[in-house]
């Protein structure tokens, strides 16, 4: 039984390492901030969650604290990427777009107008 848990844990650690690497690679390869955020957030969240959970399966007596770390990463990482995307858009970072699809511009303009008037 312990051996099966160990194999699953090792597999999770390996998968996590691969996804952490892919997240960092996406950070370098993508063309603009928003696409970079997409690649970075998703891949690094699952990568970190899976690595940490893998260690939790190798050491069953650590599992409670490990679960807290996993849940914290799952909640906090999308939040910080959302805050960064919003702040950058308001600071004037224009998203890269082939077909110029941008429904957010109008809403931001309206909000700024309401603030200043």
């Amino acid at each position: 039984m312990m051996e099966i848990l160990e194999y699953i844990g090792m597999a999770l650690i390996l998968i996590g390492g691969i996804f952490l690497f892919l997240g960092a690679l996406g950070l370098v390869r993508m063309p603009d901030l928003y696409t970079r955020l997409q690649a970075g957030t998703k891949a690094s969240t699952l990568g970190a969650m899976s690595t940490v959970l893998g260690v939790g399966l190798l050491h069953p007596d650590w599992i409670l604290k490990i679960l807290i770390i996993v849940i914290f990463i799952g909640v906090a990482n999308p939040l910080s990427s959302h805050a960064l995307a919003r702040a950058s858009y308001r600071k004037g970072v224009i998203p890269f777009s082939k077909n110029n699809i941008d429904k957010y511009k109008k809403a931001v303009k309206k909000q700024i107008k309401n603030l200043t008037s």
């Binding site: 997240g23 960092a24 940490v52 960064l84």
Partner: peptide
């Protein structure tokens, strides 16, 4: 600066793992 902050975020996640 947004790119740098995001790189820092990914950095700290990898360090945590």
């Amino acid at each position: 600066s947004g790119d740098r902050a995001m790189a820092l975020d990914t950095f700290s996640i990898i360090i945590t793992a």
